[in-house]
Amino acid sequence: MMRDHLSSLAKPLRRSGATNWSGLLFVAPFVLCYLALLVWPLLSGIWLSLHAIDLLSNLGRMAGVLNFIDLLRDEMFIRSLRNTLLFAALCTPAMVITGLALALALNRPGRTTAILRGVFFGAGVLSVTIVTLIWRLVLMPDRGMLANVLHGAGLASVAPLQNEWLALPAVALATVWWGIGMPMMLFLASLQQIPHDVYEAAALDNTSRWRSFRHITLPAIRHSVILVAVTQMIAQMQVFGQVQLLTQGGPNNSTRSLVMFIFEAMFEQWQLGYAAAGAQALFLLMLAGMSLQGWLERRERKALA
């Protein structure tokens, strides 16, 4: 009897162990893909950045941190890094402010607002080639839409993509036009989670719209503001396509981005290790952005606790 009782207790234990192993089997495909597509390339990139390797011959030697020292001495890398940070500084606030303004304006029922949401979000599904073609036509000197508007106002036409001071803001403007749909939708989703009773109570107290926005709306969507700001900052640090197609990094390297620098180091100069070192510098920038998001979220949780 005692033996039968012990065997009956052991069966559930064996079944639970089998269930745990079956759960690991379900997770295994994701883990393997994660290791193969993310972890292994990251480790390979770090290994390459510590070597001086020619892409053609695939022969190299251990360089240690010499690639990173050369990066710090490379004026083109410093210029590309500064352009990338400036581009992110131009685009990120514009994405947050414009996306929130559109979400506030379109956060109401109706066919017209639904159509406008689709219009603003529709630009985001266009390819970078189509976007740059549209903005080339807009910014074309003498014959573009901007030139026609300036001529109609009695002003001289300008060529923003050929001006060292205007080229990067022009690319940033095209990028904001292209990507504003996703921040707008994220803010719309957050705004629709706010109970209407709160606004009705504020209206009964004769609260102005500005005070309602400041004391009700902003605190309720602060997590979305942080999310949009950090994700856009990380995304804009990886700018490449629109710069490559609109300006090719010019004029006078005023729009050359960090990704373009990495691309040229690998496929034009054939310096695989040097390009990998530049990629690691970009990775550290994005890692700093993700760390900033985590720090802000922890600070918000501590403030609410």
Score class of each variant (00 low, 15 high):
residue 3 R to H: 12
residue 8 S to A: 15
residue 9 L to C: 13
residue 10 A to N: 04
residue 14 R to G: 10
residue 16 S to Y: 08
residue 20 N to W: 13
residue 26 F to E: 02
residue 26 F to C: 03
residue 28 A to T: 11
residue 33 C to W: 09
residue 37 L to P: 10
residue 37 L to K: 05
residue 39 V to I: 15
residue 41 P to Q: 06
residue 46 I to S: 02
residue 46 I to T: 00
residue 49 S to L: 02
residue 51 H to T: 04
residue 55 L to Y: 01
residue 55 L to C: 00
residue 56 L to E: 02
residue 60 G to K: 03
residue 72 L to D: 00
residue 76 M to L: 14
residue 77 F to P: 06
residue 79 R to L: 12
residue 83 N to Q: 00
residue 96 V to D: 06
residue 104 L to R: 09
residue 109 P to N: 13
residue 110 G to D: 06
residue 114 A to W: 07
residue 115 I to E: 06
residue 116 L to E: 06
residue 118 G to P: 07
residue 118 G to I: 11
residue 119 V to Q: 00
residue 120 F to W: 07
residue 130 I to L: 10
residue 132 T to I: 06
residue 142 D to R: 14
residue 143 R to C: 05
residue 143 R to V: 14
residue 148 N to I: 00
residue 154 G to F: 06
residue 160 P to L: 11
residue 173 L to C: 11
residue 191 L to W: 03
residue 192 Q to D: 09
residue 193 Q to K: 11
residue 198 V to R: 15
residue 202 A to P: 12
residue 211 R to E: 11
residue 220 A to V: 02
residue 225 V to I: 13
residue 225 V to S: 01
residue 226 I to D: 10
residue 228 V to Q: 00
residue 241 G to C: 12
residue 247 T to E: 04
residue 255 T to V: 09
residue 261 F to S: 06
residue 261 F to Q: 06
residue 262 I to R: 01
residue 262 I to K: 00
residue 263 F to S: 10
residue 264 E to Y: 03
residue 281 A to W: 00
residue 285 L to A: 13
residue 287 L to K: 02
residue 287 L to W: 06
residue 301 R to G: 06
